[in-house]
Design a protein around this nucleic acid. Structure first.
Length: 518
RNA sequence: CGGGGUAUAGCUCAAUUGGUAGAGCGCUUGGUUCGGGACCAAGAGGUUCUCAGUUCAAGCCUGAGUACCCCGACCA
């Protein structure tokens, strides 16, 4: 099994000072942390065990919340008959350019070559699901007759295929893992509430688990999900100031009920079409995690998503020291495990402690405990935090020194859990502070241009009354797009009130958030 | 699908005018090390993307194909 050679990071320069290398930096982190790699299959990604362990923790957090809001998991087919996908016209048109299509079902051997058997052509092509609305609504038809059958609250964990031209590990791959919720309701009000409820679930996970603050809002018509009446989204800011869409929740109205013919008898005995929602997040969240928090040493993980909370590195010279140090390290290991923490004792021979430090830091382990002769003498443990809030002008070596502390043994062991909780909060605060530093309320194009061309850019709160063409013009001139029309609760005081459209000067009732985006 | 580029060891890349296939890192073994990426020695590892052509001779030149990367179009 081939392993890429880890490269030493160029740690003298910060990430912010080399935004143009951001893509390379991102790939380095993914590689150093051994999260994922490109596969031999075009556009597809292999998620390695460490990356998958993080995904599993994230899955668990999401799934618990889905269950708590009354949803149940189910599974639907990978293949969607072409005619079925085509039923909802705008939906089909939206995904038309990125579908993988199965046309045959058999191979045969010709002169020692395995080829597709032309005789096995399918009567109707099967589309590998780019999303599952159509096939799920086809099934809902049989489940729904009366208002008593509603609501139906279903979630599916699955892989889907969107044949993207350009791919990037976690952020955009031809095949990806996600969860898609699909719900059916008797009333518009209920469905709209559900759309909001799940957006709030996503925002909760983003902020409290991933430690990434997000903006909640609506997409403009052009960015809306194909087939939806309203698309709500959460948008996070990455360390290069670009926005990343981290989750979406769609109000689908009666579109899919109508195209699939799903009607129910309401309490008054009248036949009515069902109201629908769908919502999803994907392994892209792992990409968000990397881009929001990591540094030049590698991955930085919020403790709640860390597959390993604490790594123990023993330090010794002689055989005698070795046996004593290992004995102590194993004792500490056992005590921490008894607290329910996930702990790794790195007993590997032939690697210097420094090499081990780099390896585990690269993988994002939040805390390291070094156990050496000095600690045995003093009855202490050396506690090292993976992440510290930055002090401007501080060098790498100074920061490392600050991250280390020799703590009395009992105090250290009792303090791990509170420390992890504190680090989780610090990480969110750091991300919040960063976002605030890269957010502006802007009222004219000159300031807007300056923000993106000179100040690094970020989120711009601007008045907007333009149409799709005007949005295109902004994209051409500044590479920015409207990330969302924020929900009223997310609008800061200084961005409230009416004004004039940034581009057209037309009257505008509210501001939107513009940014460069992934 | 349009424009540009690349393809050589596990990884990053050299190879003079067409003339014996190389380095660093990683890997294996042995020894000395070990509180921030240790050192020494030995070793394993190659269909130079594929196919065809030119030539005494091709990693290098020509043609076709394939894959990947960058810029567009598309995008959770």
């Amino acid at each position: 099994m081939s392993q890429p050679t880890p490269q030493k990071p160029n740690s003298e320069e910060g990430i912010a000072t080399r935004a143009q290398d951001y893509g390379q930096w991102y790939l380095d982190v993914v590689r150093r942390a051994q999260l994922a790699e490109h596969s031999a299959v075009r556009g597809c990604m292999v998620i390695r065990p460490h990356g998958y362990a993080i995904w599993e923790k994230l899955q668990r957090e999401l799934d618990d919340r889905f269950k708590a809001t009354g949803h149940e998991n189910a599974y639907f087919p990978l293949f969607i008959p072409l005619s079925l996908l085509a039923k909802e016209e705008s939906h089909a048109a939206g995904f038309a350019k990125e579908c993988a299509v199965v046309t045959h079902h058999r191979l045969k051997s010709v002169n020692g070559q395995v080829v597709v058997d032309p005789d096995s052509k399918l009567e109707e092509p099967l589309v590998v699901r780019p999303t599952s609305e159509t096939i799920i609504w086809e099934q809902f038809k049989g489940w729904i007759q009366s208002y008593r059958d509603l609501p139906i609250l279903i979630n599916q964990w699955a892989n889907i295929v969107r044949w993207e031209m350009r791919t990037r590990l976690f952020l955009r791959t031809a095949e990806f893992l996600w969860q898609e919720g699909h719900t059916a309701h008797a009333t518009e009000k209920e469905a709209i509430e559900e759309t909001r409820r799940m957006l709030d679930v996503y925002a909760d996970v983003a902020e409290n688990i991933l430690a990434i603050p997000v903006l909640k809002g609506s997409k403009t018509e052009g960015e809306r999900f194909a087939g939806a009446l309203d698309t709500l989204c959460i948008e996070g800011m990455m360390q290069d100031g670009k926005a990343l869409q981290m989750g979406t929740s769609h109000y689908l109205g009666q579109n899919f009920a109508k195209s699939s013919g799903v009607q129910f008898l309401n309490a008054e005995g009248k036949l009515e079409y069902v109201y629908a929602t769908s919502w999803g997040v994907s392994t892209r969240l792992i990409g968000a995690l990397i881009m929001a928090h990591s540094d030049d040493t590698g991955l930085v993980l919020p403790p709640k998503l860390a597959p390993i909370h604490v790594v123990l590195v023993p330090i010794y010279k002689t055989d005698e020291e070795k046996s004593k140090v290992l004995e102590e390290a194993r004792a500490v290991h056992a005590e921490l495990k008894a607290q329910g923490l996930s702990v790794k004792l790195d007993e590997r021979e032939g690697l210097s402690p420094g090499a081990k430090y780099y390896e585990w830091e690269g993988k994002g382990v939040p805390l390291r405990i070094e156990v050496g002769p000095k600690d045995l003498e003093k009855g202490s443990l050396c506690l090292v935090k993976r992440f510290l809030p930055a002090i401007p002008g501080e060098t790498d070596i100074q920061r490392r020194k600050r991250a280390k502390s020799f703590v009395p043994r009992a105090e250290a062991i009792a303090g791990i859990k509170p420390l992890l909780d504190q680090m989780q909060k610090e990480l969110l605060e750091k991300a919040r502070a960063f976002r605030a530093s890269r957010t502006r309320v802007i009222d004219n194009l000159a300031d807007f241009e300056k923000f993106y061309k000179e100040e690094g850019g970020g989120f711009a709160w601007v008045h907007w009354a333009g149409d799709a063409k005007d949005e295109d013009e902004m994209a051409k001139r500044f590479e920015t797009s409207i990330r969302c029309i924020p929900l009223p609760e997310d609008i800061p005081p200084q961005a409230q009130g009416a004004g004039q459209c940034l581009l057209t000067g037309k009257p505008s009732a509210r501001r939107v958030v513009m940014a460069k985006a992934y």
